[in-house]
Design a protein around this nucleic acid. Structure first.
Lengths: 181, 181
DNA sequence: ACCTGAACACCGTTCAAGT
DNA sequence: ACCTGAACACCGTTCAAGT
């Protein structure tokens, strides 16, 4: 199952090149350009990553595991309500990196990101349930709701400050509820 | 200022062709394909619409004016809070049409859509202020907030039913507020 | 096994030549 | 004035030929 040495090396070169190019040009960056910068032929890129999303997922993996670590740290160091909100803010920032790569990878739309999705979900569940059990988060909200809302905000907000505001609004609600008895 | 007869005709053919192609393939549809279907050369397309967004704006105009009409109708026929919510739902559905054309055009990102933005804003203001004055909408929320939130939802939600749910969540808020005294 | 890179059909965009 | 369509540099993707 392990790759031949040169194949392994080419794979690493491709992921490194893709990381650089995607950081500069976003997730629609030219695949030929990535292969060129990695010093391999386009065919080699396709051999290792049959689809664009497969390559993007490899680029994305490192950042994703960082986000999962942070979820654990927050869950250990802050009260449930605050930990969840803090992590949602990290998730939003994250979704804005690399001109939309983040938002693209965290939505379940791209079938290649099934692994990413599972990792994210596991990390989030550790924050979600305590927040609900302690009465800080509505019990009818689930992981999918949170990801879609934060990904949407990240795609629409022109800058991080706007994203921060939109997330705050979403947490608190736009509507003024009728006064309670 | 009026166009020569053949130029006028070509312009109309281009918008009609673009409307069809964009409905099928979304806002990234091939411009050469649009020119081909309109029966003109690619140069003619560029003469009339120097950028892709200029062409998309022309396609978008019809739908947009419909949305403005609906804002007026709602504002006349429903109480302020309900009228605004109903219109936000229309806006969301609208932003999902043509594989993202709507969301793309209502964000102020594309400089070519300045006119669209102004039209939308005028329509929305007639609903926003009454809702705030009657105590149904938070007074610190503005038009930009509403557009960015609905555009975000439209981009992230996989289908209209999900979009409906996400908008409801955003209106009501995710967080459970501490009990009031 | 794996890599190479030429090749194909396409794209956005431009511009000399026409009417 | 406006239109045409060939042409250019690029893109994603494939595949025979090499090692």
């Amino acid at each position: 199952m392990t790759l031949r040495a040169d194949a392994r090396r080419n794979r690493d070169l491709l992921v490194a090149a893709a990381t650089g190019v995607v950081a500069e040009e976003g997730p629609e960056a030219s695949l030929n350009e990535i292969a060129r910068r990695a010093g391999v032929g386009p065919g080699t890129l396709y051999r290792h990553f049959p689809t664009r999303d497969a390559l993007l997922a490899a680029v994305f993996e490192g950042r994703l595991s960082r986000l999962c670590e942070q979820a654990e740290e927050l869950s250990a160091s802050a009260p449930p309500g605050e930990a969840l909100v803090a992590w949602l803010r990290l998730l939003t920032v994250h979704a804005m990196t690399d001109k939309g790569l983040g938002a693209r990878m965290m939505l379940p739309t791209s079938a290649a990101s099934v692994d990413c999705w599972a990792m994210l979900r596991a990390a989030a569940d550790g924050l979600l349930k305590p927040a609900q059990e302690s009465g800080h988060l509505r019990p009818d909200v689930d992981f999918t709701d949170l990801v879609e809302l934060t990904a949407g905000i990240a795609q629409s907000a022109p800058d991080p400050a706007r994203a921060h505001r939109l997330l705050t609004l979403t947490l608190d609600g736009l509507r003024i509820p009728p006064a309670r008895a």
